[in-house]
Amino acid sequence: MSTIPQRSSTRHGAAYAEKGQGEPLLLIHGVGMRLEAWAPQIEALSSSRRVIAVDMPGHGESGRLPAGSLLPDFVAWLGRMLDDLSLDSVNIAGHSMGALIAGGAAATFGKRVRRVALLNGVYRRDQAARAAVLARAKAIRSGSIDVEGPLLRWFGEDGRDTEAYRLTCEWLTGVDPEGYATAYAAFAEGDGTYADAWPRVACPALFLTGEDDPNSTPAMAEAMAAAAPLGQARVVVGHRHMVNLTAPEAVNGMLAEWLAREEVRA
């Protein structure tokens, strides 16, 4: 894995690492992960951008949010971070839970968000998927952290013998239990929070997922893209949930195309 720059911390306790110069790109990882999950994107995209990867609250070296915090609290946390870094105009890309935060930022922060990208984002789960994720959130709150289940959903049986699997297992195993429980509960409840906002999000919006992702499905990406005035859906064929690690060249290319789109608002 590429070397991650040394972390810094904002006034409000958000840990981040940055590399490169130019137009800023903020990266937000998924629940149970840490900013190292963006290593391939930091390395590739920092050649032409100021890339800032952040540890989500209660993950990596970022401080926790209070127990019971919901998705809007994570979005407000992101707003404080942007203020602390004096980022008045920024591109934001998020993965999984980070995608929900990025979508909330696009819905809330107006022209401050130049472009938004959701990687493996969930959108209006059906009843069965919602029941399953709420059950997992309840188990995590009770202190039961399942590592094998997420890894199987994210990689499938064929992905076990890969470096991406090993790293993801390491991060998930080492996550702070309280921070994880708070974030996962917000993730479980959050797929509908900003779902109605996409018609009002006027910036270029990319919705990217893996063809075989069972939870953040291509149909979800296509539905969000259809709702957003400048939405675009992209699907990485033959991959699942951790596309930023398992298909970095394809994902980096799609992100570069998104970053090159003119910021002409609908």
Rank of each mutant, 00 (worst) to 15 (best):
V90E: 00
A39C: 06
I52Y: 09
M81N: 01
A53S: 09
A14M: 04
P66E: 09
A107L: 01
A15G: 08
S48V: 12
P66D: 12
A53H: 07
S46C: 05
R64I: 04
V31H: 00
G110W: 07
M81F: 15
Q6T: 14
G13R: 02
R115Y: 01
R34K: 11
S48Q: 15
S96W: 06
G104L: 06
A14N: 03
G98P: 00
L85M: 12
H95S: 09
R50L: 10
F74W: 11
S69D: 02
I52A: 11
T108V: 00
P66H: 11
A44K: 13
E36V: 11
L82Q: 00
V75A: 04
M97A: 12
A102H: 06
S69H: 08
M33Q: 15
S62L: 14
L27F: 07
S46Y: 10
T108E: 09
S8R: 13
S69P: 06
R80E: 15
S96L: 07
P24W: 01
S9Q: 10
R80F: 10
A117V: 08
A44P: 10
I92V: 15
S89A: 15
W77V: 01
L35S: 13
G30K: 05
Y16N: 07
A93H: 00
K19C: 14
V113I: 15
L35G: 03
G110E: 03
Q21N: 14
A37F: 13
H95Y: 10
V54Y: 03
R49Y: 12
K111L: 05
W38I: 03
D55N: 09
G68R: 00
G98I: 08
H29W: 07
M56W: 08
I52G: 07
W38A: 04
A106W: 00
I28M: 13
S69A: 15
A117F: 06
Q21A: 15
K111Y: 05
R115E: 08
I42C: 12
P24A: 14
L45W: 05
V31M: 03
D88H: 14
E18W: 00
G60C: 03
K19N: 06
S69E: 08
A37I: 13
S86E: 15
D88F: 03
G32T: 09
R64H: 07
E61H: 12
S96Y: 06
T108I: 00
A53P: 04
S8E: 14
A37N: 11
G60I: 00
H29A: 01
E23V: 08
A67H: 03
